[in-house]
């Protein structure tokens, strides 16, 4: 009756099958979220193209999407970064607007009444200022969350009010208009025939994707999001890494603000309020786990594209903008429901 204690029979609890083979299947298993998203996107595309081929499939339609989606895309990636550690950043829209407003205020100081005529140098100065706003705002969030240990939801709820409020104080309410030409290029320009915002988004998304999947920082971020306590026991400097992730979030938000104000040639304290919800939605849709530890730039990018196709399609079909809000919300609930159903099936 005595069990043998020879070491050889020990690892027999889980048989180890050969390591080779099934690469494609493994890819689908690991990235099933992305596969599902691509399928949804393709479906949206086909349905829209079938319903209104002449308008939907026009080059102009895709071009206008390529101008509009980058700001939301960047905000979604920003909120995904916060979600990776199980947090959230409700202040991204506030940061975006504050960055743009502060830059706008600077331009008005440099050339009162004629800020639209400012040169490249001033525009660069403004860009620098906007980015600094993003860094400082992100650092404030990071400090509150990583150091003072305030729940992210509440900390960023508070700072979003502060950022939006400061932008309101600076503008006094109405929108700031008249940005230098080189500034509006960020939102409206074309490089090699491609929308500049799109290029900016592609570069930044690739960079963040690279940081997350290929650097030690990205891996550590995922580990902290999976189990913050174990991360401490593994010797990860969790406070510093969480802090840095919020700084990065703030920086991305400020760049989104740059694009938004460049595109509209204006800055206001309450622009793009609905972006917060949409960014959360896109992040979750893109496979980000709001509890932390899972999420990818690729998923979020596809999700934002899918939703953009969807809304542009509905716009072409002359649905009101408000119904599009409804569709976004419905889409979020639907995807959550699908994920629940799939997980049940997998377990059962």
């Amino acid at each position: 009756m005595a069990l043998k204690t020879t070491p050889t029979d020990a690892p027999a609890t889980t048989p180890a099958p050969p390591k080779t083979g099934g690469d494609l299947r493994r890819f689908f298993n690991q990235h099933d979220n992305i596969v599902q998203l691509v399928a949804i996107t393709a479906l949206v595309f086909v349905v829209m193209a079938a319903l209104s081929p002449d308008k939907f499939l026009r080059y102009y339609n895709f071009e206008s999407i390529s101008f509009i989606f980058p700001e939301l895309g960047l905000l979604s990636i920003a909120i995904m970064l916060a979600m990776l550690t199980g947090g959230i950043d409700l202040s991204i829209v506030g940061v975006a607007n504050l960055a743009a407003v502060l830059a706008g205020t600077l331009f008005h100081h440099l050339a009162p009444g004629a800020s639209a005529g400012l040169g490249l140098g001033s525009a660069l100065l403004g860009i620098g200022l906007a980015l600094v706003v993003g860094l400082v705002a992100g650092a404030l969030n990071g400090f509150l969350i990583a150091r003072l240990k305030i729940t992210p939801i509440l900390a960023t709820l508070g700072t979003s009010q502060v950022f939006t409020g400061l932008a309101l104080v600076l503008t006094g309410g109405p929108a700031l208009v008249g940005f230098p030409a080189s500034w509006t290029f960020i939102g409206n320009g074309k490089l090699f025939g491609v929308a500049f915002p799109f290029i900016l988004f592609a570069v930044l998304a690739a960079a963040i994707g690279f940081v997350l999947s290929r650097t030690a920082f990205g891996t550590r971020l995922m580990l902290i999001g999976t189990n913050a306590k174990a991360a401490v026991f593994a010797g990860l400097d969790t406070d510093r890494i969480v802090f840095q992730s919020y700084v990065l979030t703030g920086l991305l938000a400020s760049i989104a603000g740059l694009i938004l104000s460049g595109r509209t040639n204006a800055a206001k304290s309450d622009y793009g309020n609905s972006y917060l919800l949409q960014a959360v939605l896109v992040a979750v849709l893109g496979g980000t786990n709001p509890a932390g530890g899972r999420g990818s730039v690729l998923g979020v990018s596809i999700a934002v594209l899918a939703l953009m196709l969807l809304s542009s399609g509905f716009q072409i079909l002359r649905f009101s903008n408000f119904l599009i809000d409804f569709i976004w919300g419905g889409f979020l609930l639907l995807v959550i429901a699908i994920n629940v159903a799939r997980n049940r099936k997998r377990l059962g």
Partner: peptide, 8 residues
């Protein structure tokens, strides 16, 4: 999500 649905 529900907020967006209802407002929309």
């Amino acid at each position: 999500g529900t907020a967006s649905v209802v407002r929309g």
